[in-house]
């Protein structure tokens, strides 16, 4: 698999869209949390000034950047950018279909499974990069707010790996299914930003915990905005969430592999 990943790297390292989107995304992880922090401090300062006349002096009075909550706050905000690497995955796969290189790789001697598992390995690598960048963002923010990095930061970083993996493997599944960049991206955005919220609204009436079992929401639920955990009182336990997330990851892997292995290319 390492060899096929090396070949994958040969394919994408000179692809300008991949280069630009990757740099934008990885920098965006640091930038989005820093912007949130500055806005948050500014708003809190203004509110406190209006209510008490006292100056908050840029203090985190809600404690969302305290040692306990910093990892969750960071990963919650950076997860909003996960659609960007999702678009990269769709673009890379559909490029192969458009250039018919997904056929040529097989003709040249790859197994169909090798092709699709290489894409899944690439997703694992990108998810690992997301995890590392999230941890880096925690370290930087801890320095800025004079907080500490705890064991929780490592655990939440690992959760962010799983969250990124589910978002990206879902994108790959859609790309294998639709085979057209535009359609796959539209469905990806519509599902993630609209349809899943509609489903949330529908299933919450059946049971308040059910929305946390939806494909993308289940991974979001691993990293809630825990300073306000009362908003998530129906959150399943971490163990259950982990099982659901891993289940969805395996399901999308299986569907993508089956689609690629048995269909005409």
């Amino acid at each position: 698999m390492f060899k096929s990943l090396q070949i994958e790297w040969m394919k994408i390292k000179n692809y300008r869209v991949f280069q630009v989107f990757s740099v934008l995304y990885l920098l965006g992880i640091i930038v989005i949390i820093y912007i949130f922090y500055k806005v948050y401090i500014s708003i809190i300062g203004e509110l406190q000034k209006a209510m008490t006349g006292a100056n908050s002096e840029g203090r985190d009075i809600l404690g969302i950047f305290s040692s306990d909550y910093l990892p969750y706050t960071v990963c919650f905000w950076t997860s909003l950018l996960l659609y960007l690497p999702g678009m990269i995955i769709i673009n890379l796969f559909i490029n192969e279909v458009n250039f018919k290189t997904h056929r040529q790789n097989i003709i040249d001697g790859w197994k169909r499974e090798t092709f699709i598992f290489t894409k899944i390995s690439l997703i694992a690598c990108i998810s690992a990069a997301v995890m590392i960048m999230n941890f880096l963002a925690m370290v930087i923010m801890a320095q800025i707010v004079d907080s500490e990095i705890t064991k929780e930061a490592v655990i939440v970083s690992l959760f962010s790996f799983l969250q990124a993996f589910v978002y990206l493997i879902f994108a790959l599944f859609l790309a294998t299914f639709f085979r057209r960049s535009g359609i796959a991206m539209i469905v990806y955005f519509i599902y993630g930003l609209i349809l899943e919220w509609v489903l949330w609204w529908l299933v919450v009436k059946i049971h308040p915990s059910l929305p946390h079992f939806l494909p993308l929401q289940s991974s979001d639920s691993l990293i809630p905005f825990t300073r306000f955990r009362e908003l998530y009182k129906d959150l399943p336990s971490v163990g259950v969430s982990l099982a659901v997330v891993i289940g969805y990851a395996l399901l999308f892997v299986t569907l993508a592999v089956r689609k690629y292995k048995y269909d005409d290319l």
């Binding site: 394919k11 692809y15 490029n95 250039f99 018919k100 290189t101 056929r103 040529q104 097989i106 003709i107 040249d108 001697g109 790859w110 197994k111 090798t114």
Partner: peptide, 17 residues
């Protein structure tokens, strides 16, 4: 796939990046 590695094939159109 091991046999395909030993065969040179041009199918339909040139497929490259």
């Amino acid at each position: 796939n091991e046999q395909r590695k030993q065969i040179g094939t041009l199918l339909e159109t040139p497929n490259f990046y």
